[in-house]
Amino acid sequence: MKQMDDGNEAIIKIRNIRKSFGGIMAVKDLSFDLFEGEVLGVIGPNGAGKTTIANIISGFLKPDFGDVFFRGKKLTGLPPYRVAELGVTRTFQVVRPYPSLKTYKSLIVPLWSPRARRFAGSRGGDRDAVAIDLLEEVGFERDAYVPYKLASALPLGYLKRLELARCLALRPEVIICDEVLSGLSMSEIASLIPLVERLHIKRVTLLMIEHRLRELFSVADRVIVVDFGTKIAEGVPEQVMEDERVKRAYLGEEVDL
């Protein structure tokens, strides 16, 4: 089991965020920290407010109350592109490809962004090559025809990786993965896990919102459990799963891991 480094400063601090839609409180006074280089899992039953958390951190939703800080800088109130430009990127649970573009061409979009151009330096001119490299990094076969297909023709597994590739194109410091594993077959999951581990080794901070507990626990350093918009438990995976409230709220009475 990997232990988080206690000396680390939190890279993202979430303080008392609250968000309601109509009469429903999606997130209720939630606070947690994300430390540099760790993989933090966020789990919870359907409708617990997990995706809302991702939307709030990435700037797609404004919280009714509370703040999100990135390295001490306030993220709340910034538009999504500013958040991404600071290095806090996200994937979408419902994948968002560009159906009319070829797969590798759709990575030109993030590579064209000011952030990516700042990093690109002299290689900025050959974005096609960088795009192909990125696709290979997330597991597209380089020689196969796949990167040259239209994004609309790809199966879900590739589209989820394309989401990750879009984040990687921005040289992110934090990636918020909104259910990248759900909806995939076991073999597709098996091939994504090493990618997550590689990112972990590169000390990219990951916030993984996930339903797939077994796979998540194999990579996560720490897990928080949310239910009805509040945090009900936090800690290393094994410890969290022993928590009575978690069992009751999320897994029912029997825990079979």
């Binding site: 991404a84 996200r90 993030p110 064209w112 194109a169």
Partner: peptide
Amino acid sequence: QAVLASAI
């Protein structure tokens, strides 16, 4: 939305 998420 995806373009926004691409820091543009």
